[in-house]
Simulated assay, not measured.
Amino acid sequence: MKNTDQTNAFSRLQQEMTDFAKERDWDQFHNPKNLVMALTGEVGELNELFQWLTPEQAENFPADKQEALAHELADIQLYLLRLAEKCHIDLEAACDRKIALNKAKYPVEKCFGKSLKYNEL
């Protein structure tokens, strides 16, 4: 089921990223390979924020680093949306399909309270 607000948010952000890249003549660099590499770099930066935290510290992320966390999450989301657009993937529809697939692979009655992979249930 399509969430119109989410679809509009994805579309709006994708259009803003397209416009941003075109205004700077960066579209030439935004091919899927380069976008995956940029996305990986941003995930690495997110990883650095959590790298030496205990699980408890990660659950209560330091207030003085919240803005840095928000920036890294936004960078990841924006690169992901740009990559999806360049690869002609409807990200919302892909997420809906993946959630349905995961529900089938991990039925509640088999996996409740377990961290096993679907083929080990």
Rank of each mutant, 00 (worst) to 15 (best):
K86N: 07
L83G: 02
L46T: 03
N8T: 06
L49V: 13
L69V: 02
E67S: 14
M37D: 07
D25L: 09
D19F: 09
Q77F: 06
M1C: 09
L35R: 10
A74G: 08
T18C: 03
A38F: 05
K98Y: 01
N8Y: 08
G44N: 15
P62V: 08
Q28N: 12
Q14G: 02
A93P: 03
G41C: 11
L116C: 04
P55K: 06
A104C: 02
N119K: 08
Q51H: 15
K65L: 12
V108N: 01
K33G: 06
K2D: 12
Y79N: 00
D5G: 09
L91Q: 06
H88M: 05
C95W: 05
A21S: 10
F61L: 10
A63C: 00
D19V: 15
D5S: 12
F10I: 08
V36H: 15
A93S: 09
W26Q: 15
Y118D: 12
N34V: 04
I89H: 00
A70P: 08
A38T: 01
D5M: 13
I89Y: 02
E92Q: 03
K22H: 04
L116N: 07
D96V: 07
E59M: 15
L53K: 03
L13P: 07
Q28H: 12
L73D: 09
A38G: 03
F50I: 15
E56M: 10
F112C: 15
V108I: 08
A84D: 04
V36Q: 14
Q57H: 12
R82P: 02
A84H: 09
K65N: 07
P55T: 10
G41S: 12
R82S: 12
I76E: 10
D96K: 05
Y118C: 07
M37R: 09
E92R: 02
F61C: 07
W52N: 15
L121C: 09
A70N: 14
K110Y: 00
Q15N: 13
C95Q: 09
A74H: 09
L101K: 10
Y79K: 01
K110V: 00
E56H: 11
C111Y: 00
E85P: 00
E48C: 14
E59I: 14
L39D: 14
K105Q: 03
T54I: 06
L121D: 05
A94S: 02
Q28T: 13
A104N: 06
L73P: 13
P55D: 10
A84C: 09
L35H: 11
P32H: 08
Y79D: 00
W26A: 15
S11E: 01
S115E: 12
A74D: 06
E72Y: 08
R97C: 05
T18S: 09
D19R: 14
W26M: 15
L53P: 01
A38P: 01
E42D: 07
L49T: 12
L39I: 14
G41Y: 13
P55F: 13
I76H: 12
I99L: 13
N47C: 11
N60R: 08
